[in-house]
Design a protein around this nucleic acid. Structure first.
Lengths: 254, 254
DNA sequence: TAGTGGTCTAGACCACCAA
DNA sequence: TGGTGGTCTAGACCACTAC
């Protein structure tokens, strides 16, 4: 433990903050710093290493940004707990609730908003709204076993969901009872660094990588039902897809 | 322009570096700072705003991390160029080369490595190798129209690819000539912050969000052909998927 | 209340780039 | 060579947490 923050061994090449960072990472890898362990206070590390506190902070900063350390103001700096990685099959149209239930995980939703609004231009486009149409917006943080996994922002025409406040756990379950459950959807997946607000909601550091998914769900008739933008924690989620050879795939759309 | 860095208007609430950051973002959004424009030198911004250089750097740091600004040592700080976002259909098994050709983009590969190695434990698992088997490793940076888009690290048994140095542009094209082109693949998609080396290869800042894709490709016989780990630039790539209702999908595996 | 991280300053030297 | 970003220091005050 002392060896991690000893003043010697800071004799390597490169910036001092990177050398210190490297030593902390090594200590975490070989178990000298285990998940949950706290690091000495920044001022103490500075005194032990002979560096300034600013330099120590810069070393720690990078590890906090990559999720390996967690800082709590007034409390201390801790080695982050490992997050179990969940995997979701991407080829099936399932809801988050159903998906988690299937693998025996609890699901909690923290509602941020459930109300009717005037549509944004983006929503008008995606949902194919007419003049005067209004949208139901559902915004929530999805948790499983207490760990926040995703932020979900769904928009639906009030014609399919006039009373968004009735949605409890599963949006798809409610849509099903009204005969409006989508049977087909198109998703776009990309990655983005999370902003301050979203990172906060997901319990990660601003700038952490998130999986951004935009989904448009269709009824059998081809009408659009839902337009959902989700942000998944990059460190906690995997999507699995099965692909087939191009020439091999049947054309179901022709 | 001066208004962005004027000493007044730093009267809002919250940390000074966030207030300055917000003003820079606003200037980029309304075009007062256009892509390619340079910002004043850090020391000048400090003088103009009445802040210390350290505080100015902290404001800029966040925007560099999220890819909105680019810093060049000895040269200056610049508003980042916007990167056109490409979209790839995820339901078809195509190669990068074919994919880009289809949309009229040029493709360049920068080879980092093309050689035969002893397999790592991970490769033994994924490829189902036996004792004594060796692997061909292909590592390259994929560029389109000069912009680096992805890092691709492919591993194949030397039984299907004895001479990796023969791979020129398209791995799949070569495999096809040998009757070893995969017809099916399973992918896992997640997001991760890019490390220093990978970020450098992709021309983005360390910590930027990347789309991580692991793919295992199969022959018609069910044998594994390739194990590929790719990292796509999160700001330049979109994957599109079409989903179908669970109960609706035919079971082809039963 | 004592200790922690969060912010901020003024000033310094170095490495790199362009003219 | 002069200007730029990159690193580093010593010291200060604030906000929050735990006791």
């Amino acid at each position: 433990m002392e060896s991690v923050f000893s003043p010697d061994a800071l004799t390597g090449s490169g910036p001092l903050y990177l050398q210190l960072q490297r030593r902390i990472v090594e200590a975490m890898q070989d178990g000298r710093l285990a998940p949950g362990n706290s690091l000495p206070a920044e001022r103490d590390i500075a005194a032990m290493t002979g560096l300034s506190r600013v330099t120590v902070r810069k070393a720690v900063e990078g590890l906090v940004a990559s999720g390996q350390l967690v800082q709590k103001r007034g409390s201390g700096t801790f080695v982050a707990a490992r997050v179990e990685r969940l995997e979701q099959a991407l080829s099936l149209l399932t809801s988050f609730t159903e998906d988690m239930a299937r693998r025996g995980k609890s699901v909690e939703s923290v509602w941020l908003s459930r109300a009717v609004h005037s549509p944004s231009p983006e929503e008008v486009m995606a949902l194919g709204l007419g003049a005067g149409d209004r949208v139901a917006r559902l915004e929530r943080v999805r948790r499983s076993d207490g760990v926040p996994l995703a932020i979900e922002r769904a928009s639906l025409s009030t014609r399919v969901l006039p009373h968004p406040e009735l949605v409890d756990t599963s949006l798809y379950a409610l849509l099903e009872t009204m005969g409006n459950r989508p049977v087909r959807a198109v998703q776009r997946i990309s990655a983005a660094n999370l902003g301050a607000r979203d990172a906060d909601l997901l319990g990660v550091v601003p700038g952490a990588a998130g999986l951004k998914i935009e989904r448009i769900g269709y009824l059998p008739s081809g009408r659009v039902v839902e337009f959902t933008r989700s942000l998944y924690r990059g460190d906690a989620y995997d999507f699995a897809v099965e692909l087939k050879l191009a020439a091999d795939s049947e054309r179901t759309t022709g």
